[in-house]
């Protein structure tokens, strides 16, 4: 198997707080990999380091073998490394079609075109429509993101990332805050993602993790604590102790 995303001794200090400690991590091609850990374990910090929101104190990040440690955020996206956010980060005043459309036009390298209307890019309307249909957003295409019901916002949060055609997708608690009734819709979408997209999932919901992932890494106190197949992690007594909280299912 080939490694698509790798970190070597990645470290991030916030003053005295060691948010990420010497994390050496590999994500394999086509992986369905989950990153779990108790609150404050540094999972989101790790994602922020991978995507360039934060600069690491030391260590390197490789994407498909290239060192991307000092590559700009938007260039990482262009290289196929895309994320979703734990708290929705949408474009409040734009409607659903426009939001998805701008991601597509940017991906296709039209982001600097100022001399033609966005809707006239060839084929863009169909691509927007397809993605919106896939994510159950076709009924709200013309509504501003800020006014969408939370479940739809959560789906759009993921749809925007997919519109960037990721090769590696980092998902930060995609089902966070989604009411039970809408949860299956979000989960279905995640399961239906193409198998050639390598996915790293951060999640609290253990049902979701065990259903989705084939490999699991456990982060505790900013350091990698354990890693293995789903079964190995599920049966690791140390993991059960620090994270799963002993015997309760």
């Amino acid at each position: 198997m080939t490694t698509v995303l790798e970190t070597r001794n990645l470290r991030k200090d916030f003053g005295a707080l060691k948010a990420t400690q010497d994390v050496s991590f590999r994500l394999e091609a086509g992986a369905r990999h989950a990153l779990i850990g108790p609150n404050g374990a540094g999972k989101t910090t790790f994602i922020n380091l991978l995507t360039g929101v934060l600069k690491p104190t030391s260590g390197e990040i490789f994407l498909n073998g290239d060192d991307i440690t000092s590559v700009r955020r938007d260039r990482r996206v262009a290289r196929g490394l895309v994320r979703t956010f734990q708290i929705n980060q949408l474009f409040g005043k734009l409607n659903v079609a426009e939001s998805i459309g701008l991601v597509i036009s940017e991906r296709r390298g039209h982001g600097r075109d100022w001399w033609r209307f966005a809707g006239k890019l060839p084929g863009i309307a169909d691509e927007i429509a397809q993605l919106a249909t896939d994510f159950g957003l076709d009924s709200v295409l013309d509504q501003p993101c800020a006014g969408l019901p939370y479940g739809k916002q959560r789906l759009l949060e993921i749809a925007l990332a997919i519109a960037a055609k990721p090769k590696v997708l980092l998902m930060d608690e995609p089902a966070a805050g989604v009411p039970e009734a809408d949860r299956h819709e979000v989960l279905d979408r995640i399961s239906a993602l193409p198998s050639d997209v390598s996915i790293l999932l951060i999640e609290h919901d253990m049902d979701l993790v065990f259903n989705f992932a084939s490999r699991i890494s456990v982060l505790v106190g900013g350091a990698l604590f354990a890693e293995g197949t789903t079964a190995e992690i599920a049966n690791d007594p140390r993991v059960r102790e620090v994270y799963l909280g002993g015997g309760d299912e």
């Binding site: 955020r73 938007d74 701008l102 600097r112």
Partner: peptide, 23 residues
């Protein structure tokens, strides 16, 4: 234009704009 939409993305949410590839 596509350029204009990328501006609006920056206006509404610069963090997300960069996370979907807008420089």
């Amino acid at each position: 234009s596509p350029f204009g939409y990328s501006l609006k993305a920056v206006r509404d949410n610069p963090l997300r704009a960069s996370a979907v590839g807008v420089p």
